[in-house]
Simulated assay, not measured.
Amino acid sequence: MDDPRPGYPGRMDQEDRRSGRDETEDERADRMWGDLIQEVRVAQTGVQILFAFLLTVVFTTRYITLSDTNQAIYVVTVVLAAAAAGALIGPVALHRMVSGRRMKAQAVVWASRLTFAGLLLLLATMTGALLLVLRVATDDAYVPWLVTGVVAWYLLCWFVLPLWTLHHHTTR
């Protein structure tokens, strides 16, 4: 039986009953932090590998033969990768600085925002890298169409499907 006293850790409110979770605010923040860090690990690994690869390109003999446009695409892509890495590593630094100060719920909010910004920057980085590679490797005539198709796929997987799922399961 639920304890009717407000703030009692074992008490379930109406929202908790609907969600099937019986957790305090601190427990919820801990769970959400754990979920977020698992998600960030996947994105961090990808952006770090891509960033490392991009950093090596400038040291190849082929780099100096790139057109000015391709070199500009490269520079922008490297900067985007650096920004994405910063945003996706940011939640770890945030957690380290606020750990033990009873700010987990606020840390989750800000870490979520950093992660979302990191995903947007990662999208831009992957777009730039794909554009550069395809411009160098293939005929320019169809590169914009290929890149547009892949970016549309990213948008579908990363944003449209999650938003559709959110809308579909919260409006019933």
Rank of each mutant, 00 (worst) to 15 (best):
Q106F: 01
W153E: 04
T56C: 11
M103K: 03
A105E: 12
P4N: 06
V57K: 11
L114G: 03
Q48T: 05
L155A: 13
R18V: 07
T69L: 14
T170Y: 08
V42K: 02
A85L: 10
L119A: 08
G128W: 00
V58A: 10
Y142P: 02
V143Q: 01
H168D: 10
A117I: 15
L36D: 02
G90F: 14
E25D: 15
L122A: 06
L163S: 10
D22A: 11
S19P: 05
V147Y: 02
P6M: 05
L122D: 00
A85C: 14
R21P: 00
L166N: 14
R21I: 11
A43Y: 09
E23T: 13
V78S: 10
D30E: 15
G10P: 12
T115H: 12
T56D: 12
T170P: 04
V58P: 00
A52L: 14
F51D: 09
T69D: 09
V76C: 13
W110I: 05
I73M: 07
W145N: 13
L166I: 06
Y8I: 00
W33Y: 03
T125G: 10
L163D: 02
A152M: 15
R31H: 10
G149I: 13
Y142L: 15
Q44A: 04
Q106M: 03
Y8T: 04
V75E: 12
I49G: 01
G46Q: 05
R17Y: 13
